[in-house]
Amino acid sequence: MNNTSTAVALRDPWAMLPSLGNLDAYIAAANRVPLLTHAEEVDAARRLRDHGDLEAASRLVLSHLRLVVSISRKYLGYGLPHGDLIQEGNVGLMKAVKRFDPDQGVRLVSYAIHWIKAEIHEYILKNWRMVKVATTKAQRKLFFNLRSLKQSLKDEAAEADTHRSTLTPAEVDSLAETLSVKREEVLEMETRLSGGDVALDPQTDDSEESYAPIAYLADEATEPTRVIESKARDWLAGDGIALALDSLDARSRRIVEERWLNVRDDNSGGMTLHELAGEYGVSAERIRQIEVAAMKKMRKALAEVA
Score class of each variant (00 low, 15 high):
V109C: 05
K137R: 15
A170F: 08
Q104Y: 02
I71S: 10
V172L: 08
I120A: 01
H121D: 03
S152V: 07
L85S: 14
A112L: 03
N90D: 14
Y78P: 14
L142A: 04
V97R: 03
V97F: 01
P102E: 04
E88P: 02
E88V: 02
G92P: 06
F144G: 00
V172W: 02
S70G: 11
L67A: 05
L76T: 15
V131C: 09
A170I: 15
R164G: 09
E88D: 11
L149A: 10
D103E: 12
P102F: 02
F100D: 01
L108R: 00
F144T: 02
K117N: 07
G92C: 10
V91E: 08
L76D: 06
L149S: 04
S152N: 10
R107H: 12
A157F: 05
Y78E: 09
A118P: 01
E171M: 06
K141T: 08
S148A: 14
G105F: 02
V172S: 00
R99I: 03
S70E: 12
V69L: 01
K150T: 14
F144P: 07
D84Q: 12
E171T: 03
K117H: 06
K98D: 11
D103P: 00
A118S: 07
L167M: 11
K117F: 00
S110Q: 13
K74E: 13
D155I: 12
P169Y: 05
V131S: 06
F143E: 01
T162P: 10
V69Q: 00
A170L: 09
E88M: 13
E119W: 01
K141D: 11
S165W: 10
D101G: 13
A160P: 05
P81T: 13
V91F: 14
I113S: 11
V69E: 04
D173Q: 12
S165R: 13
E156N: 11
F143K: 01
W115A: 04
V172T: 13
K154Y: 05
A96N: 04
E88C: 13
H82D: 07
G83M: 08
D84P: 09
E119N: 05
R99E: 08
G83E: 07
L108H: 00
A160G: 12
N90A: 14
D173I: 13
A112Q: 05
S72V: 10
L93S: 12
